[in-house]
Design a protein around this nucleic acid. Structure first.
Length: 209
DNA sequence: TAGGCCATCTGGTCCT
DNA sequence: AGGACCAGATGGCCTA
Protein backbone atom coordinates (compact mmCIF):
# COMPACT_ATOMS: atom_id res chain seq x y z
CA UNK A 1 0.00 0.00 0.00
CA UNK A 2 1.29 3.34 -0.90
CA UNK A 3 -0.85 5.67 1.11
CA UNK A 4 1.96 6.15 3.56
CA UNK A 5 3.75 8.37 1.16
CA UNK A 6 2.88 11.49 3.06
CA UNK A 7 4.16 10.11 6.29
CA UNK A 8 7.85 9.73 6.80
CA UNK A 9 7.27 7.04 9.38
CA UNK A 10 6.56 3.47 8.42
CA UNK A 11 4.61 1.05 10.53
CA UNK A 12 7.71 -0.96 11.22
CA UNK A 13 10.61 1.37 11.59
CA UNK A 14 12.80 -1.15 13.35
CA UNK A 15 12.85 -3.73 10.60
CA UNK A 16 15.99 -2.58 8.88
CA UNK A 17 17.92 -1.36 11.85
CA UNK A 18 19.02 -4.59 13.41
CA UNK A 19 18.74 -4.94 17.15
CA UNK A 20 16.97 -2.03 18.66
CA UNK A 21 19.32 0.72 19.73
CA UNK A 22 16.45 2.15 21.71
CA UNK A 23 16.53 -0.61 24.22
CA UNK A 24 19.54 0.79 25.98
CA UNK A 25 18.43 4.36 25.85
CA UNK A 26 14.93 3.40 26.92
CA UNK A 27 16.12 1.16 29.70
CA UNK A 28 18.60 3.71 30.89
CA UNK A 29 15.89 6.31 30.93
CA UNK A 30 13.54 4.06 32.83
CA UNK A 31 16.21 3.17 35.32
CA UNK A 32 17.31 6.69 35.97
CA UNK A 33 14.15 8.67 35.83
CA UNK A 34 11.04 6.57 36.17
CA UNK A 35 10.58 3.44 38.15
CA UNK A 36 14.02 2.05 38.90
CA UNK A 37 12.83 -0.93 36.91
CA UNK A 38 16.28 -2.14 36.02
CA UNK A 39 17.27 -4.95 38.35
CA UNK A 40 20.00 -4.38 40.92
CA UNK A 41 23.48 -5.54 40.09
CA UNK A 42 24.42 -9.15 40.69
CA UNK A 43 22.22 -12.18 40.58
CA UNK A 44 18.52 -11.80 40.12
CA UNK A 45 15.86 -14.28 40.97
CA UNK A 46 13.36 -15.16 38.27
CA UNK A 47 10.92 -17.63 39.70
CA UNK A 48 12.86 -20.63 40.92
CA UNK A 49 15.80 -20.02 38.65
CA UNK A 50 18.52 -17.54 39.38
CA UNK A 51 19.66 -15.46 36.46
CA UNK A 52 22.80 -13.52 36.07
CA UNK A 53 22.36 -9.95 34.99
CA UNK A 54 23.69 -10.87 31.58
CA UNK A 55 21.16 -13.68 31.20
CA UNK A 56 18.38 -11.43 32.30
CA UNK A 57 19.48 -8.80 29.86
CA UNK A 58 19.50 -11.38 27.09
CA UNK A 59 16.07 -12.54 28.12
CA UNK A 60 14.83 -8.98 28.13
CA UNK A 61 16.18 -8.41 24.64
CA UNK A 62 14.49 -11.58 23.48
CA UNK A 63 11.17 -10.58 24.98
CA UNK A 64 11.42 -7.10 23.54
CA UNK A 65 12.18 -8.52 20.13
CA UNK A 66 9.19 -10.82 20.26
CA UNK A 67 6.95 -7.98 21.32
CA UNK A 68 8.28 -5.81 18.55
CA UNK A 69 7.63 -8.57 16.04
CA UNK A 70 4.14 -9.02 17.41
CA UNK A 71 3.40 -5.35 16.96
CA UNK A 72 4.85 -5.44 13.47
CA UNK A 73 2.54 -8.33 12.61
CA UNK A 74 -0.35 -6.39 14.04
CA UNK A 75 0.55 -3.36 11.94
CA UNK A 76 0.88 -5.54 8.88
CA UNK A 77 -2.61 -6.84 9.47
CA UNK A 78 -3.79 -3.27 9.93
CA UNK A 79 -2.20 -2.32 6.60
CA UNK A 80 -3.97 -5.27 5.01
CA UNK A 81 -7.23 -3.95 6.35
CA UNK A 82 -6.47 -0.47 5.04
CA UNK A 83 -5.82 -1.90 1.60
CA UNK A 84 -9.32 -3.30 1.27
CA UNK A 85 -11.02 -0.27 2.72
CA UNK A 86 -12.96 1.72 0.14
CA UNK A 87 -11.02 4.89 0.31
CA UNK A 88 -8.59 6.18 -2.23
CA UNK A 89 -4.94 5.31 -1.87
CA UNK A 90 -3.77 8.31 -3.78
CA UNK A 91 -1.17 10.77 -2.60
CA UNK A 92 -3.83 13.22 -1.51
CA UNK A 93 -5.16 10.91 1.16
CA UNK A 94 -3.38 10.53 4.41
CA UNK A 95 -2.96 7.07 5.88
CA UNK A 96 -5.84 6.14 8.13
CA UNK A 97 -5.03 5.96 11.78
CA UNK A 98 -5.54 2.64 13.51
CA UNK A 99 -8.67 3.70 15.29
CA UNK A 100 -10.10 5.23 12.12
CA UNK A 101 -9.32 2.06 10.21
CA UNK A 102 -11.14 -0.07 12.74
CA UNK A 103 -14.18 2.18 12.93
CA UNK A 104 -14.39 2.60 9.18
CA UNK A 105 -14.05 -1.15 8.70
CA UNK A 106 -16.84 -1.73 11.16
CA UNK A 107 -19.07 0.75 9.35
CA UNK A 108 -18.17 -0.78 6.02
CA UNK A 109 -19.23 -4.21 7.22
CA UNK A 110 -22.49 -2.80 8.51
CA UNK A 111 -23.12 -1.09 5.18
CA UNK A 112 -22.40 -4.24 3.21
CA UNK A 113 -24.67 -6.28 5.46
CA UNK A 114 -27.47 -3.79 5.00
CA UNK A 115 -26.89 -3.72 1.26
CA UNK A 116 -27.02 -7.47 1.10
CA UNK A 117 -30.27 -7.59 3.02
CA UNK A 118 -31.74 -4.90 0.80
CA UNK A 119 -30.58 -6.72 -2.29
CA UNK A 120 -32.11 -9.97 -1.08
CA UNK A 121 -35.36 -8.20 -0.38
CA UNK A 122 -35.45 -6.63 -3.84
CA UNK A 123 -34.56 -9.86 -5.57
CA UNK A 124 -37.32 -11.60 -3.68
CA UNK A 125 -39.75 -8.87 -4.66
CA UNK A 126 -38.86 -8.98 -8.33
CA UNK A 127 -38.24 -12.64 -8.91
CA UNK A 128 -39.89 -14.35 -6.00
CA UNK A 129 -43.38 -14.14 -7.42
CA UNK A 130 -42.28 -15.58 -10.78
CA UNK A 131 -40.99 -18.77 -9.28
CA UNK A 132 -43.12 -21.83 -9.57
CA UNK A 133 -44.15 -23.23 -6.20
CA UNK A 134 -41.57 -25.69 -4.99
CA UNK A 135 -38.96 -24.55 -7.47
CA UNK A 136 -35.58 -25.38 -6.05
CA UNK A 137 -33.39 -23.41 -8.42
CA UNK A 138 -31.33 -20.80 -6.70
CA UNK A 139 -31.99 -17.14 -7.19
CA UNK A 140 -28.45 -16.49 -8.29
CA UNK A 141 -28.96 -18.53 -11.42
CA UNK A 142 -32.09 -16.61 -12.27
CA UNK A 143 -30.76 -13.11 -11.73
CA UNK A 144 -28.67 -12.22 -14.75
CA UNK A 145 -26.30 -9.47 -13.68
CA UNK A 146 -26.63 -7.40 -10.55
CA UNK A 147 -24.90 -4.06 -10.38
CA UNK A 148 -21.88 -3.87 -8.10
CA UNK A 149 -22.92 -3.13 -4.57
CA UNK A 150 -19.85 -1.12 -3.65
CA UNK A 151 -18.58 1.21 -6.33
CA UNK A 152 -15.29 2.95 -5.86
CA UNK A 153 -15.85 5.88 -3.60
CA UNK A 154 -13.98 9.08 -4.40
CA UNK A 155 -11.30 9.90 -1.90
CA UNK A 156 -12.74 13.28 -1.14
CA UNK A 157 -16.06 11.75 -0.16
CA UNK A 158 -14.50 9.27 2.20
CA UNK A 159 -12.46 11.93 3.82
CA UNK A 160 -15.75 13.70 4.34
CA UNK A 161 -17.28 10.50 5.59
CA UNK A 162 -14.66 10.18 8.25
CA UNK A 163 -15.32 13.65 9.49
CA UNK A 164 -19.07 13.24 9.77
CA UNK A 165 -20.89 12.52 12.97
CA UNK A 166 -23.46 9.74 12.88
CA UNK A 167 -26.27 12.25 12.69
CA UNK A 168 -24.84 13.67 9.49
CA UNK A 169 -24.91 10.41 7.60
CA UNK A 170 -27.99 9.75 5.55
CA UNK A 171 -29.31 6.92 3.45
CA UNK A 172 -29.34 7.83 -0.21
CA UNK A 173 -32.81 8.34 -1.62
CA UNK A 174 -34.04 5.67 -3.98
CA UNK A 175 -34.11 8.19 -6.81
CA UNK A 176 -30.41 8.91 -6.58
CA UNK A 177 -28.66 5.83 -5.26
CA UNK A 178 -25.23 6.80 -6.39
CA UNK A 179 -23.77 4.75 -3.52
CA UNK A 180 -26.11 1.86 -3.90
CA UNK A 181 -27.57 0.96 -0.55
CA UNK A 182 -24.88 2.68 1.43
CA UNK A 183 -25.09 5.53 3.88
CA UNK A 184 -23.89 8.30 1.66
CA UNK A 185 -21.54 10.96 2.92
CA UNK A 186 -21.33 13.02 -0.22
CA UNK A 187 -22.47 16.58 -0.50
CA UNK A 188 -25.23 15.65 -2.92
CA UNK A 189 -27.08 13.50 -0.42
CA UNK A 190 -26.69 16.03 2.31
CA UNK A 191 -28.73 18.54 0.34
CA UNK A 192 -31.46 16.12 -0.60
CA UNK A 193 -34.51 15.52 1.58
CA UNK A 194 -33.62 13.13 4.36
CA UNK A 195 -35.32 9.75 4.10
CA UNK A 196 -36.09 7.88 7.31
CA UNK A 197 -32.96 6.30 8.71
CA UNK A 198 -32.76 2.55 8.71
CA UNK A 199 -29.56 2.00 10.57
CA UNK A 200 -27.35 4.16 12.70
CA UNK A 201 -23.79 3.85 11.54
CA UNK A 202 -21.02 4.54 13.95
CA UNK A 203 -18.93 7.33 12.57
CA UNK A 204 -15.45 8.44 13.30
CA UNK A 205 -15.69 11.32 15.69
CA UNK A 206 -12.49 12.93 14.57
CA UNK A 207 -11.68 14.25 11.11
CA UNK A 208 -8.85 12.66 9.24
CA UNK A 209 -5.68 14.64 9.26
C1' DT B 1 3.34 24.91 20.74
C1' DA B 2 -0.24 21.65 21.90
C1' DG B 3 -2.30 17.59 20.65
C1' DG B 4 -2.63 13.32 17.98
C1' DC B 5 -0.51 9.23 16.58
C1' DC B 6 2.88 5.96 16.84
C1' DA B 7 6.85 2.64 18.19
C1' DT B 8 9.08 0.77 21.85
C1' DC B 9 10.06 -0.93 26.46
C1' DT B 10 8.33 -3.04 30.40
C1' DG B 11 5.91 -5.78 33.90
C1' DG B 12 1.84 -8.36 34.78
C1' DT B 13 -1.39 -12.06 33.62
C1' DC B 14 -3.01 -16.00 31.26
C1' DC B 15 -2.39 -20.11 28.60
C1' DT B 16 -0.07 -24.27 26.83
C1' DA C 1 8.92 -22.45 31.94
C1' DG C 2 8.15 -20.01 28.00
C1' DG C 3 5.33 -17.53 24.92
C1' DA C 4 1.32 -14.58 23.79
C1' DC C 5 -1.29 -10.86 25.01
C1' DC C 6 -2.23 -6.58 27.25
C1' DA C 7 -1.88 -1.99 29.15
C1' DG C 8 0.86 1.82 31.08
C1' DA C 9 4.70 4.88 30.40
C1' DT C 10 7.63 7.42 27.55
C1' DG C 11 9.67 9.99 23.79
C1' DG C 12 9.69 11.17 18.81
C1' DC C 13 7.47 12.92 14.74
C1' DC C 14 4.03 15.55 12.45
C1' DT C 15 0.36 18.89 11.79
C1' DA C 16 -2.87 22.65 12.72
Amino acid sequence: MDSDCLSSRSSSPEFDRGESPQFLSGAMFQAHSVGQRMPPRGRVKAGKRELTQENQHELRLKVNSRERQRMHDLNQAMDGLREVMPYSHGPSVRKLSKISTLILARNYIVMLSNSLEEMKRLVNEVYGAQRAPGCASSLSTRVPQLPPVMPTVPASDYATYLSLSSSDICQPPATAPHFLGLPCPCHICQYLPQPPRRTAAVAVSRPIK
